[in-house]
């Protein structure tokens, strides 16, 4: 039984674009990737919601994180930010643990995650993005206030700076969040559905902003839903469904076959069996 040839494996390298469900060797991690995710598994309760996610996010790209509802996209962003505990695995930001690199990360949470009746103005919210740069007990300096106003200017919300946030429309709320992230002046931006509930004009201007960020060398990861626009918006995609289905440059990866794999709906002989199974459980 204990036989083993010393013959080197003849396995050809998997081409970049080929969807490799099980790349047996694992990902080759670069120590300088903005985000390296090593075998991360996250479970909220009994079942894992993210399973063995293992990938590097490349630098200076505009990355789309695509997947069906409940695929674990928000959870992945939260795991990167250290907002949910991981069961195993770890995340490195430019090769170092998160705790040392917090300032490099900008986060745009899902819009519903906050109370829009809260008594703060647009400017207050944008200034919150800069709190990470002053530390406990300190107040913002004049320079910070100026940077917050610049961020407001960039998203075209200067006129509404003194409005209470409850008076904003969905698109305006999203722009406020975006301005808050811009004010952070982070190296890496993680955005959870920045286009959800946003009118098409705002969406276009947000995309232009994201491209600006990318062109300035920042890395941007966006959770995105609309399959139609993926190819136009992002130059790199990660298809996620509990695990990474595939990832790579948009042109290589964003194929119909891969989409079907991420979103399912494939009618094989077995899917009827699977449906029956789902009902039994």
């Amino acid at each position: 039984m204990e036989t083993r040839t010393d013959r080197p494996t003849t396995r050809p390298a998997v081409p970049e674009h080929r969807p490799a469900p099980a790349s047996p060797a694992g990902t080759d991690h670069s120590p300088n990737a903005p985000i390296s995710i090593h075998d991360v598994t996250v479970a909220y309760d009994r079942k894992p919601v993210l399973w063995d996610v293992d990938l590097d996010v490349p630098e200076g790209r505009l990355v789309g994180l695509i997947g069906p509802n409940g695929a674990g996209k928000s959870t992945l962003l939260k795991a990167i930010l250290g907002l949910v505990p991981v069961i195993s695995g770890r995340v490195a930001i430019y090769g170092k643990p998160l705790s040392k690199q917090r300032k490099l990360l900008g986060y745009v949470p899902q819009r519903e995650s906050v109370d829009w009746d809260f008594p703060v103005t647009v400017r207050d919210v944008v200034q919150m993005g800069l709190y990470g740069q002053v530390g406990w007990f300190r107040r913002l300096r004049r320079e910070h206030v100026r940077r917050a106003d610049e961020a407001l200017e960039r998203v075209g919300m200067t006129d509404l700076a003194d409005r209470q946030i409850s008076q904003l429309s969905g698109g305006q709320q999203q722009r406020v969040f975006l301005a808050r992230a811009l004010a952070q002046d982070a190296q890496i931006y993680l955005m959870d559905e920045p286009f959800a509930g946003v009118d098409s004009a705002t969406e276009k201007s947000i995309v232009a902003l994201l491209h600006d960020l990318r062109n300035a060398g920042r890395t941007v990861v966006c959770v995105h839903h609309d399959l139609q626009t993926v190819a136009a918006y992002f130059d790199y995609v990660i298809l996620l469904n509990m695990r990474v289905v595939t990832h790579g440059a948009t042109a290589d990866v964003y194929t119909e076959e891969n989409l079907r794999k991420t979103y399912g709906g494939q009618l094989t002989l077995l899917s009827s069996a699977a449906t029956a199974l789902a009902q039994r459980h």
Binding site: P68, A71, M242, R243, G264, G265, Q266, L270, A278
Partner: peptide, 25 residues
Amino acid sequence: VRNHRLWELYLITHADVAPSHVDSD
């Protein structure tokens, strides 16, 4: 290894129903 690869494949080929079944435990 086999379990892992089969699960992976299942998640891909049956993405529509998969997450409710997956149980790595």
